[in-house]
Design a protein around this nucleic acid. Structure first.
Length: 568
RNA sequence: UGCCUUGUGGUGUAAUGGUAGCACGUCGGAUUCUGGUUCCGCCUGUGAGGGUUCGAAUCCUUCCAAGGCAACCA
């Protein structure tokens, strides 16, 4: 192990309870002072932000105390699993910034050893084959308040059990015909001890082992032992496995001794407002076409957040903020949004884009003149440089930035009032030109030639500064505006309603005819983070092509003006 | 009503028997060529009762509330 953390090196580092437990074990010299964690996804879906929390814990604690973290695919149920998911899981972990080196394992690699252990337990009279249907077994299990009853097959001889188990794996019986159960205690107050099923027959081919096996181990009979085979010291999982822990320990005891014994520790799952985290529900959204796929930018998946423009740093910072406890919390999505804005504010290139354009003609500006004005790429970052943007007589501004009869404290364009066009000149609105229906088609302004940004005459104070784009040079783009997927705070809590009824109908708005400055079109590579000034953070979607630009809104800028308006 | 777990401002999280702190949020203000950022200030908390102690969010106890456990899922 590494030296005992920053906690002892002066810098005050607050450990969460899991880290504290791990540190205590290391100090006590357990497992020879070794630290090895594991992240064990089942390859049956895409990773979501809840998994990100587990990843940060599993890899993070190993990193912090000089241990290692394995990636283990928990592939014990071929019916639900697929290689498609294996690839996406690898990609998502790497994207988050973690690496498992050559320690990539599969529970399916342990099928032979698990089978051997099962055989041993059968011979020792600790396991038996049950011929009953799942309904019968469920009925005999009792309820949390009523003890179970024993199976009539419970006292078969080890010889008979062994013969039956071998034949189960040879494919002699149909799925569901027989199972192997641990012989523990049908009256245990812990439901998981009421003779849990160890093996069931599955004839669906496995994505890695094909048709080699006809019986597959259940989670409880595979997980702890897999940890043991790998040398995992701390098996960190979420709270719902708390009641499984005694069973974990029961099976692991068949292999381990004092010199090395893995240990399970549970922390709270991540719940986020205005979304769902259940894989079943996410899969349903995808399958029913309610979203565009696992990586739809509204999804709480890692791939969705990546596509939306969230950064790995923002996700990690968020997870760090919400912490790890044993309290089942509901985390406000505004915490996540804050982390995203905070990171993007430091990283995003500032550009101009007008989402809902209205044309402005600067009547006293020479008709043929074009001048290049200089724009900061990022005022938050020293050395981010500048880029140039064309300015001419015809420009676009946001339709919302003009009002003929404005409310109080409207600092934008209105007849008779001066505003600054960011990076260019101060202009004064003279009149709004309307069509027969009274719609504003064009706004006429005059500019002050001495007010160019940086010039001596520019020092004059004006209340508002607007973003704009040259109408002659603007490039058209499509923008996708994303909002929260659900319209209720905690969809999972409203069990009486179908969760699909709670979807936010306005979670996606597509805006065509957006005008962006040429610099944006020239730099619209995947992964680029832009701030459309005064609007929000945007990133090119993978659907975007030269000539058909598409941007995803990662998150809007905070808007205290809008907030003010809503109050009135 | 069996077993396990958990209750700290609106939300999340610290305080490891010794001044209840931090972040987000809200509201207000300052700065600003982004109504962004930054800065300053305000607000709101130990689920309830009893006990141990010089001293309790922390230990004990009773109660209340919430979550988990009855897949041949993980």
């Amino acid at each position: 192990m590494a030296d005992n953390t920053e906690a002892e090196n002066g810098k005050k580092d607050i450990l969460n309870f899991v880290e504290q437990t791990v540190l205590d074990d290391l100090k006590a010299g357990k497992n020879g002072g070794r630290l090895n964690t594991r992240f064990p996804p089942e390859p049956n879906g895409y990773l979501h932000i809840g998994h990100a929390k587990a990843i940060c814990m599993d890899f993070g604690v190993a990193e912090k105390f000089g241990g290692t973290c394995n990636l283990r695919f928990d592939d014990t149920n071929p019916v639900k699993e697929d290689v498609e998911y294996v690839d996406s899981i690898r990609e998502d972990i790497h994207w988050l910034g973690f690496d498992w080196g050559d320690r990539e394992y599969y529970a399916s690699d342990y099928f032979p050893r698990l089978f051997d252990l099962a055989v041993r337990l059968i011979k020792e009279g600790k396991a038996y084959v049950d011929d009953q249907t799942s309904e019968q077994i469920a009925e005999q299990k009792g309820t949390p308040t009523v003890p179970g009853t024993e199976s009539p097959y419970r006292n078969r001889t080890p010889e008979e059990n062994l013969d039956l188990f071998m034949r189960m794996n040879a494919g002699e019986f149909e799925e569901g015909a027989r199972v192997l159960r641990a012989k523990i205690d049908m009256a245990s107050p812990n439901m998981h001890f009421r003779d849990p099923i160890m093996y069931r027959i599955i004839k669906t081919p496995h994505h890695r082992t094909g048709t080699t096996w006809k019986v597959y181990p259940m989670y409880d009979f595979a997980h702890g032992q897999s940890d043991y085979f790998e040398g995992v010291t701390h098996s960190i999982c979420t709270l719902e496995f708390e009641v499984h822990r005694p069973l974990y320990e029961y099976f692991v005891k068949e292999l381990a001794d004092e010199s090395y014994c893995p240990r399970q520790i549970e922390f709270n799952r991540l719940n986020l407002t205005y979304t769902v985290m259940s894989k079943r529900k996410l899969l349903q959204l995808v399958k029913e076409g309610l979203v565009a796929g696992w990586d739809d930018p509204r999804m709480p998946t890692i791939s969705g957040m990546r596509r939306r423009g969230y950064t790995p740093e923002s996700i990690r910072n968020f997870i760090n903020t919400i912490g790890y406890t044993k309290y089942e919390a509901l985390n406000s999505v505004s915490l996540l949004e804050h982390a995203v804005r905070d990171d993007l504010n430091k990283k995003a290139t500032r550009v101009m884009a007008v989402l809902n354009p209205v044309k402005v003609v600067i009547t006293n500006y020479p008709e043929d003149k074009v001048e290049m004005v200089s724009m900061d790429n990022n005022p938050e970052e020293e050395g981010a440089g500048t880029h140039e943007m064309p300015f001419c007589r015809d420009i676009y501004i946001e339709r919302d930035d003009f009002m003929e009869n404005p409310p109080k404290k409207f600092f934008r364009m209105t007849p008779g009032q001066e505003v600054r066009l960011k990076g260019a000149y101060i202009v004064k609105c003279e009149e709004a030109v309307k069509d027969a229906e009274g719609n504003i088609t064009e706004i006429h302004c005059t500019y002050d030639p001495d007010s160019h940004s940086g010039a001596p005459g520019a020092a004059r104070k004006v209340k508002g500064t607007l973003h704009w784009v040259s109408a002659r040079h603007a490039v058209d783009a499509t923008v996708r505006l994303y909002d929260r997927l659900f319209s209720v705070e905690n969809p999972a809590a409203e069990t009486e309603r179908d969760f699909r009824e709670m979807l936010n109908p306005d979670s996606l708005k597509v805006v065509e005819g957006v005008k962006v400055e040429p610099f944006v079109a020239e730099n619209a590579e995947r992964g680029t983070k832009f701030q459309f000034q005064r609007v929000g953070y945007f990133t090119p979607d993978y659907d975007s092509k030269p000539g058909a630009l598409v941007f995803n809104r990662t998150i809007a800028l905070k808007d205290s003006w809008e907030k003010e308006q809503k109050k009135n």
